[in-house]
Design a protein around this nucleic acid. Structure first.
Length: 787
DNA sequence: GAGTTTGAAACT
DNA sequence: CAGTTTCAAACTC
């Protein structure tokens, strides 16, 4: 009864049934649970995980933690419905997943939407179910066979080598095919073709032929489907959801069906052309449209099996109501997406056809998914998604909160110095120790400018609604709207007229997100459709300035409470990497990036008449003269640096290390290359020598404190703020003599961009900085257990 | 809503 | 690298 997912759990399920929770659930629901036995089998087959260890069912894997975290996402969960149940593994299963799959399928096959209603599992009408289920069970096998027929054609086989892809493909194919066939031959053919292409693409990417053995095993699993038992199981699978959550599913259906279906239609329209042609012509990136759409969560799941973070993504798609999409989608990391796409292989590009929202979602999802370690050069995320990174940090903190779904308040807690008084954008977030929360999860969280952080869902929903309205509004209005209403909305909206949203002028582009409907930009190229262009442009810009997409505001380690007794939590500790150049605004308006970012001006600033409420530039240098905030920041920086760095190193190491790796998914995926530090901008020599600059950077980066969060305006903060975590990782890789070695960019890290020189001006800082740097280096090894 | 101001980004 | 131009957000009316 619990969820169709149970089946995935498999054997565990039986245990589960016995559990008090299970009993409780049963009691709640009038419907009796279906026997898990068959289901389990079916699920396995469905999952296509040949070797369980390797191919964990996408659903399961994906859902693990994220689900846990995001549970609240399940909007409509009726009280009586079984709530996501934790499996033995601790995974939570949510009925929604099933729905999500169904949805995906439909996405793939537009025509199917009709059938969609029947959606057996969705729990739509029982009547339909019966027929549908049977169909599914029956057809699925055949379909699978068909696909598997030839190694070439069989997606599963093709992907066999790659466990992830294989599972994805298998899952997608399995789910898709049946539906397609049922809906229409045409549709099925297309889908299959697409799958095939994908497989082929993957093969190419992989550069290796299929692993036949593995494939065979997979195939065998697939074949199992054919067995009557499987069919039954499948039915059961499908049916299950109904039992417990008919209502639930129904509600879900309403959410998804509309959205997805509409999308699906779009897809189909496009598909005919897209699949065959696009696949060939397009590079991997093109896949997104299809892959994302079709596989959606699957990709994520498979790709990220290891990554818990991905799970979140999946959850989003499936669980999150359509409302969320608008916002979330946007938070894409171009690079990530690209990487993901590449990974997936060539695909047809249906994305263009897809509604933006869908695209966004897809892309987002992708982007959430960490790139695989070996696949692409692209895996490396340049600097992007900075906002995401920032979010990640924030999210970390929030995660715990999220579970409970705290609408607001949580944020404020974080604001250290926050100044409630200071509205501007600042919401200072307190450092959170726990990095582990999956990045994806974190990302989702959107802070509200108000200072209250809404849960992802809440914010997303809000944003989405807003976005919808935006469409009908004039740009100005939209903007205003954004300002006022959108506080909860973290997403940026641009109004570009000439830049085509391909320059840093465009906030969306600069933030590493695609433009979305709410944007009132003209001739926008910052859309998934133009991914290639976007990526190319990004590269170009990065070539000029590697840090171009890096967060503009950097937090200093000082803020860490531990370090300084001052424990200046104030945002002041953060600084704009490049500093501002204000002449007339006195750094008291949002024209000033420092102010806008909720940080004080620093030595790096060339502003005149600085009166930045967050911390004046002069104050920084002067120290005493500075306002309290400044002192915090400035003083802490100076004073603290010496102590702090030393202490911080130790502490941070402890704290960060654990978190560091997991902390931001992006990090993992991020290429060292991207790391800004490599760059041209800053001469490497300075690295160590430049003491002040390098020191600061190095210290922070290496040890990067996850904890430190800086307050920024909603949009800015999330998007541009860099967490130290990120940097540190990068640095770690490169900086540490021992560590970074493999990674590629050895030196790079050492080179610190000018931006980070915050401490450079301060004489004390310099000395200390150098020392610190040197010291830190030696210590480094200990810090990173990895090595 | 139109127009102005501002400063970053881009260009030379 | 500095100066100029372009651009879009921020702001004012």
């Amino acid at each position: 009864m619990d969820t169709p997912e149970k089946t995935q759990i498999g054997n565990h399920f039986s245990k589960f049934e016995d559990s008090p929770v299970f009993n409780y659930i049963n009691s709640l629901s009038p419907i009796k649970p279906v026997k898990s036995i068959h289901i389990t089998q079916s699920f396995n087959s469905i999952t296509f995980a040949s070797p369980p260890s390797v191919f964990t069912s996408p659903h399961v894997s994906s859902q693990k933690e994220s689900r846990f975290l995001r549970r609240h996402n399940c909007p409509d969960l009726p009280p009586d419905l079984p709530k996501p149940v934790s499996s033995d593994n601790g995974k939570k299963i949510c009925p929604r997943e099933v729905v999500g799959d169904a949805t995906r399928l439909y996405d793939n096959t537009a025509d199917l939407h009709e059938n969609f209603k029947p959606m057996v599992f969705i729990g739509g009408a029982p009547v339909e179910q019966s027929s549908e289920h049977s169909r599914f069970s029956i057809e699925l096998p055949s379909t699978l066979k068909y696909d598997c027929g030839s190694p070439d054609s069989d997606p599963t086989l093709c992907c066999g080598t790659v466990s992830n892809s294989a599972s994805q493909l298998a899952g997608s194919s399995a789910s898709l095919v049946p539906l397609v066939q049922e809906a229409s031959e045409k549709g099925s053919l297309e889908c299959e073709a697409g799958l095939e292409n994908m497989c082929q693409t993957e093969q190419r990417n992989e550069g290796t032929g299929c692993d036949w053995e593995s494939l065979i095993s997979d195939a065998a699993d697939l074949l199992i489907f054919n067995s009557p038992g499987d069919t039954d199981a499948f039915k059961g699978l499908m049916g299950r959801p109904m039992d417990p959550g008919t209502i639930f599913h129904t509600s879900l259906v309403s959410h998804y069906s509309q959205d997805r279906i509409s999308n699906a239609h779009k897809m189909q329209l496009v598909d005919p052309v897209g699949f065959s042609e696009q696949q060939q012509t397009k590079d991997p990136s093109s896949l997104i449209g299809e892959t994302d759409i079709n596989q959606g969560s699957h990709d994520n799941e498979t790709l990220d099996q290891s990554m818990t973070s991905n799970t979140d993504v999946i959850v989003d798609n499936q669980n999150v109501p359509s409302l969320h999409r608008g916002v979330r989608r946007r938070c894409l990391d171009f690079e990530t997406v690209a990487a993901h796409w590449k990974k997936v292989g060539d695909g047809s590009k249906t994305s263009s056809l897809l509604s933006e929202s869908d695209e966004m979602i897809n892309s987002k999802d992708k982007h959430l998914v960490p790139a695989r370690p070996g696949n692409d050069s692209r895996r490396i995320l340049p600097g992007i998604g900075l906002h995401l990174n920032a979010l990640a940090i924030t999210l970390k903190e929030n995660n715990s909160i999220r579970h409970e779904i705290l609408p607001s308040g949580s944020q404020q807690l974080r604001l250290p110095g926050s100044t409630a008084s200071f509205q501007p954008p600042t919401t200072v977030q307190q450092p959170v120790d726990e990095p582990l929360t999956s990045a994806s999860t974190e990302r989702d969280i959107v802070p509200s400018e108000n200072g209250a952080q809404l849960t992802e869902e809440a914010s997303a929903a809000t944003s989405y609604l807003v976005s919808e309205e935006f469409n009908h509004m004039s740009p100005r209005k939209k903007r205003r709207r954004t300002e006022h209403a959108g506080e909860s909305d973290a997403c940026k909206r641009c109004n570009c007229k000439k830049s085509k949203c391909l320059k840093l002028y465009c906030e969306c582009f600069a933030a590493g997100v695609y433009c979305i409907e709410p944007c009132s930009c003209q001739e926008c190229f910052n859309k998934p459709i133009h991914e290639d262009t976007v990526l190319a442009t990004r590269k170009q810009i990065e070539s000029r300035n590697p840090l171009a997409f890096a967060p503009k505001v950097i937090r200093s380690s000082e803020s860490i409470p531990e370090i300084g007794e001052d424990s200046n939590n104030t945002p002041a500790s953060a600084r704009h990497k490049r500093g501002c150049n204000c002449k007339k605004s006195n750094c008291l308006k949002k024209y000033c990036e420092c102010y806008q970012g909720g940080v004080g001006c620093s030595i790096n600033c060339r502003c005149e008449g600085c009166k930045n409420a967050f911390g004046q530039k002069d104050g920084f240098a002067l120290g005493a003269g500075a306002e309290p905030e400044e002192e915090d920041t400035e003083a802490s920086e100076k004073k603290g640096l010496d102590k702090t760095l030393q202490v911080a190193e130790i502490q941070n190491d402890e704290q960060q290390n654990p978190s560091a790796l997991p902390a931001t998914p992006l990090q993992l995926s991020r290429p060292l290359l991207q790391l800004p530090f490599s760059s041209k901008n800053k001469p490497p020599p300075s690295v160590i020598v430049s003491g002040s600059t390098s020191q600061f950077v190095a210290s922070t980066k290496r040890y990067g404190k996850p904890n430190i969060l800086r307050s920024q305006p909603m949009t800015e903060k999330h998007c541009q703020t860099i967490q130290e975590d990120e940097i540190p990782e990068i640095l770690r890789g490169s900086c540490s003599p021992s560590t970074g070695i493999k990674t590629a960019s050895p030196n790079k890290k050492r080179v610190t961009p000018p931006y980070y020189d915050m401490s450079s001006s301060s004489s004390p800082g310099l000395r200390s900085g150098r020392k610190l740097v040197l010291q830190s280096i030696p210590s480094f090894p200990s810090l990173t257990p990895q090595q």
